[in-house]
């Protein structure tokens, strides 16, 4: 069990799984796994859908730009609400300008450029850390009632 301090609120995390992502075929099983966590936390269909859509965006970025990596999925509890935390870790090239990457419509991959900013709107907590040449880690939390 890991305990992290977050905005004066303690979050406890349990039932951590680590899922390796190396190819497109790994996306659907991951999504199903994350959905199971959402169901277990008692999420509404709407929040489950937001969570798996966010997962889908981040895992595709991890594959497309990060060259693959791993995803950690955990049940979290802040004392008031249950939820799911997912952490997407890659050892890819990193993102040069996070502010730019977080803008709607910005894409280096000839895509819609909605993955990162859209994901941030779909979840309750969003954190991105990146270092050039080292990799990118994105952490999201979706609360049951969030």
């Amino acid at each position: 069990m890991a305990i992290t301090k977050n905005r004066s609120m303690m979050i406890t995390a349990t039932n951590k799984v680590e899922i390796a992502i190396v190819r497109e075929q790994d996306v659907v099983p991951l999504r199903n796994r994350v959905k199971d966590y959402g169901v277990k936390a008692g999420m509404s269909i709407l929040n489950q859908t937001k969570l798996i859509t966010a997962t889908s965006e981040l895992v595709r970025n991890l594959l497309k730009y990060g060259g693959g990596g791993k995803v950690l999925v955990e049940e979290v509890n802040n004392g008031r609400d249950k939820g799911v935390r997912a952490t997407f870790i890659d050892n890819g090239p990193g993102i040069a300008d996070i502010d730019l990457a977080m803008k709607d419509g910005y894409s280096t991959g000839k895509s819609l450029g909605l993955g990162l900013p859209g994901t941030k709107r779909l979840v309750n907590e969003f954190d991105i850390k990146t270092e050039m040449g080292v990799g990118t880690t994105v952490t999201i939390i979706k609360w049951k009632n969030g």
Binding site: L46, K50, E57, D104, L114, G118, R121, L122
Partner: peptide
Amino acid sequence: QTVVHLGI
């Protein structure tokens, strides 16, 4: 709703 939040 999800599509709207994503901004599509």
